[in-house]
Amino acid sequence: MLVSANENFSSYRVFTAILFRDLTVYFRYRGSWINPLFFILVVITLFSLGFGADSQALRVYSPSIIWVTALLAVLLSLDSLFKTDFDDGSLEQLILSSQSLYLSVLAKILAHWFVTGLPIVLATPLISLILGVSFEVLPEVSLGLLLGTGILSFIGAIGASLTVSLASGGLLLSLLSMPLYVPAMIFGVQYLQDAIAGWPLVPSLSMLIGLLLAAVVLSPLAIMAGLKLSVEA
């Protein structure tokens, strides 16, 4: 992007510029958005094969299967969230720029969610079909995945920012993110169970929304600190 130095940028324009720039980069490399989706479908298929003819058990365990596979898909893709920008130095420029790093981080995670979390949400009908979850609760399950993948992206980005300068940070990233994921996992599975059983959703849904809001507002603070130290390393 060529810009003259005296041009005045609003925070909003910086946010959208980073968002669209990242989305363009992701879409030019098809693997970045196809791989997580492919991963979750393959693992869910493997689970279904593993359960064999016992479709009743599969339906009972489907909330935890959906959550664990979504968690792993997001976690595996998070390794690349800041990696290329770190390698080519644009991360350093982002930190040095006079624009708010908080908004830049938000834009980067949002772009990453668009190519990893959103395809999973859009694939909910397919996931429900494989696991034998009733189509009547499709909107509820989709909403659960929408909130859930958002929480997973924002919390996992903390670990990604801390390990981006390490040559083999992937395993460490999982080790750091897992304990932070546990609350989201507990309430997420609870929500899906309630949704599939047709129980009232307000308690678990409000917990999920609360977790997402807290993650969106607070996690960029830790991510900013993590990115700064990674660039100094």
């Binding site: 801390l162 390990t163 300068s165 830790a222 600190a225 993590g226 130290l229 100094e232 390393a233």
Partner: peptide, 10 residues
């Protein structure tokens, strides 16, 4: 020093 700060943030 980066590892020390990373552990502190975590």
């Amino acid at each position: 020093a980066s590892g020390q700060r990373a552990a502190a943030i975590m």
